[in-house]
Amino acid sequence: MELPTIIKMVPSVILSFHGLLMAFHGDICESYFNFFKCSARKLQHLIISLSNAAILKFKSILDKSEWDVVGCLQFRMSVLALVIVNSDNYPVFIKTRHDYDKSKMSAEENMNILYNMNATLDIIEERQGQNQNRDPYLGLLNQCESYKIYGLLSATRIKILLMVSTNVSVMFRDSEARSTLKQLYSSYIDVTTYNPFYCPGSEVQSKKLEELVKSVFGLTADYNR
């Protein structure tokens, strides 16, 4: 099918085509193409097969020009563990890749990861005393050859730690870690403040947070911020 005929077909296709044209200017498109190994012809079929809602979503992702879809995806595929620790240093939420897929990670590895997360809390404690940089996002805290740990420390001393594997040959960008942590923090606040049944200091149980965490681990295809 020729491109002009497609454009005539439905307004939503024009919309998505517009989104794609816009993307041509950015570097997103290039990486996007590389990632899906799309030829122009394949892309046309892709546009047609996308549902209306999907196109809108697709467009909204492309519009956020600084939002790198591929980078985000790769970042999230390599997340190993996530821990939320409350102000009294009590772990209120722990998830590792082991919980989702036992084949990807052994139990010993899992223990080792949690041990490293625990050790990172000391680094946070150190940072807490420093006054120069008071941004909640702490950046890279701990690093060895197989993993990196990023952290966030809020004004109310809630700590969120994110462990990312370095085995995948990708240069992780700081911005992905930052936006992921901010997103988790905001969701955590929603759970602890709006849920009337939540008792401060207890473990967090929330479907919404679980969903978000699943997408952080790259298990669901939702990259909305």
Binding site: Q128, N131, R134, P136, L153, A155, T192
Partner: peptide, 16 residues
């Protein structure tokens, strides 16, 4: 107050 401060400080920096 305990819950409210959590929301208000969401986007602010840590305190000196």
């Amino acid at each position: 107050g305990y819950r409210l401060i959590e929301r208000i400080t969401k986007d602010s920096h840590r305190f000196k």
